[in-house]
Design a protein around this nucleic acid. Structure first.
Lengths: 150, 150
DNA sequence: TTTTCTGCAAACGATTTGCATACAC
DNA sequence: GTGTATGCAAATCGTTTGCAGAAAA
């Protein structure tokens, strides 16, 4: 079972950087903790907060998302739909590597677990002397459902 | 030696879709053919055209880039610098797969040739019944020069 | 009490669109 | 000639920023 971030992790990481623990930041993080595996945009988060009657200014949502990413709690990604999306990092490093399968027909995003790229990373670091600390892999195609619709 | 697209390929692909061969579209494509391996944004292309005294409206540049991508001649990609970038596809399928190494310190983008992902693609297609037709891989890290600067 | 946050509205930058004119076929 | 493409300016959309008041430490 992958270990997730807690509010205490947030508190500690904020203190380390002389940032403050605010209800807004907690609420934004909670949105993600309640929805593991979701890829939410700033607008998504803003809307979900409104639904929960804990409205927060959109600018604050953006600022919180950026901060949480800097702290390594969220990961920012682009799926080509015109906005940045975020997802919680697991704290377990062996769980870090899942890839995204993006359906070019309906826009759905599936996930796929795999560690194959570790070998490739080592190979690249040797050959190009590039010090890699992260990677993102996206596969574009047609999902099962869209194939069946045709 | 990888085979590149020619103006004739463009002409043929345009005809197939009842689109017209215009000087603007040719000039935009030529910009890329003259600079293999470059990742150019719409603004880059617009600027390069200005330098060559063949100015084209920015909106037309955007429209041409989108069309060329739809035709499979260019490939659109995001490096997280706030704008879409484009690069020529080679027509040789065995050449299709190079990955991008993005330096998070200076923003430089290097390329790395590799076909390791073909196995992974097959694996994914089997397990998830997702019909993959393309993939993008990005590695984030610090390039040799930025490491030395420290 | 000091510093960092929030919320709002205005600013921004990349991209898209409406429309009249120009051009490819 | 007919239908598509261009250029311009205005519109749009996601995101960022300035600033005054609010809240955490």
């Amino acid at each position: 079972m992958p270990k997730m971030f807690t509010m205490d992790d947030l508190r500690i990481k904020l203190q380390e950087r002389q940032h403050k623990m605010t209800p807004q930041r907690q609420t934004v993080l909670q949105i993600f903790l309640d929805r593991p595996g979701k890829h939410l945009s700033a607008e998504d988060v803003h809307g979900l907060l409104r639904d929960e009657h804990s409205e927060i200014g959109l600018a604050t949502v953006y600022r919180s998302l950026e901060l949480l990413s800097d702290l390594g709690i969220l990961q920012k990604m682009e799926f080509g739909d015109g906005c940045s999306r975020y997802e919680v990092n697991t704290t377990d490093p062996s769980q870090h590597h899942h890839h995204h399968l993006i359906c070019t027909s309906c826009g759905k995003v599936l996930e796929f677990e795999d560690d194959l790229l570790d070998d490739l990373e080592h190979d690249i670091m040797e050959k190009s002397q590039f010090k890699i600390h992260d990677h993102q892999v996206k596969f574009f195609g047609i999902c099962k459902e869209c194939q069946e619709k045709k």
